[in-house]
Design a protein around this nucleic acid. Structure first.
Lengths: 208, 208
DNA sequence: ATAGATAAGTTGCAATTGCAACAGACAATT
DNA sequence: AATTGTCTGTTGCAATTGCAACTTATCTAT
């Protein structure tokens, strides 16, 4: 077991510790609010407390993609973007959201006294972001819709429990996240049910 | 400009500083050597000095994908992987490589005296990894081969210089990296030349 | 220098996937 | 309770993409 993996963790008080260490401000957004835009020069960091938000990218043709999604404990920000991104990006509230926001500088340069705890926590947070992207790349690099879905499901499934999973995204948005056409994905889910690989009803899926 | 972006940077002495701070060991690998395997419990960190290496993932069907590639200054390691990866992964030397290796613990917990420099450097390194994955996700989430290629090219192109770029991967491996069939990619490159969007010869591409 | 291996480039054909356009279910709001 | 909007689920058809099978070019090592 990789002890640095925080993908499925949400340690109690993590957001509160974050706020105390960085001076982050607690904010509330309602559904469809823009939480953060990445076309400006500022480099804020957001840490989700409750709700669900999307990182959306828009390419030159105006096509939107869900590039990442954030739930309680997930971190996001311009700092995790390459210099000179080629598309437009923003984080939007899918549901009502509460989160903590601070500047990247505050996150990195603070808390001289308890710097060990601070450093460990910051690294955990930053690495969790990299881990999420690695998972996403792993999904997207699968060549068929079926393998994209299976890879995603296996990541979501926790090993110790039964193989029934609840997908945090609705099926329309899941199709977007794995970057395939929604109707084609629905067709493939139907085929997977027919082939006995999964049993699914909406966002509830049981792996066989 | 995002001052935390290190995608295209390779600060002089970065690897040497890394080694000094972490006690990392310098290693040499020849072409096709396995540099690191992610199926074990250890959590080593690698920092490339020279050469080119690939992060390769193999799914249950035995299909291989190039999930990432590492050149001078790039960092990689198990720590950037989600817990319980669903496929097999290894880092393999595409060319002769030199790199520095240390444990993740050594990278994170060392150098109390100059911890500010250390913290800044470690964060820069970790974030560069997240940035690379963000770029990759951005590429993979494009729905057509043409848009995958254009997104990749625009990331590679440096803004201040002319729009001629040299791709570090050969075309076979590029197809793998953007997760499309090689012959289909070649066909699309031909079409893009025909349409006047690019002028290309092998790995040398000029954006129009 | 030559052979062997690796990579670039091409094309026909098949298959998956995307697109469009539906109907029906469900949720939210007045 | 009715209306509006969002989401699920389905299918025919078209188009992109993948696969297979080549040839030619380039690199590598003996």
């Amino acid at each position: 077991m990789n002890k640095y993996s925080v993908l499925n963790e949400n340690p109690f008080g993590r957001q509160k510790d974050f706020a105390k260490m960085t001076g982050a401000e607690r904010q509330t957004y309602k559904k469809n609010d823009i939480i953060m835009q990445f076309d400006d020069k500022r480099s804020d960091i957001g840490l989700m407390e409750t709700g669900l938000s999307y990182l959306v990218g828009i390419n030159a043709a105006g096509e939107k993609n869900i590039l990442d999604y954030y739930e309680s404990g997930n971190i996001f920000g311009n700092a995790f973007f390459p210099h000179k991104p080629v598309n437009l990006y923003y984080v939007i509230a899918k549901t009502k959201c509460t989160l903590y926001k601070c500047t990247y500088d505050n996150m990195i340069n603070c808390c001289r006294d308890d710097y060990i705890e601070h450093t460990k926590m910051m690294n955990e947070l930053i690495i969790s972001s990299a881990q999420r992207k690695q998972m996403h790349v792993d999904i997207l690099s699968q060549r068929t819709i079926r393998n994209k879905l299976l890879t995603y499901f296996r990541y979501i499934a926790k090993d110790s429990e039964e193989q029934q999973i609840h997908i945090p995204l609705n099926l329309s948005d899941l199709a977007d996240y794995i970057s395939v056409d929604r109707s084609a994905m629905m067709r493939e889910i139907k085929n997977m049910n027919k082939d006995g690989i999964i049993v699914s009803k909406g966002q509830i899926i049981t792996l066989k």
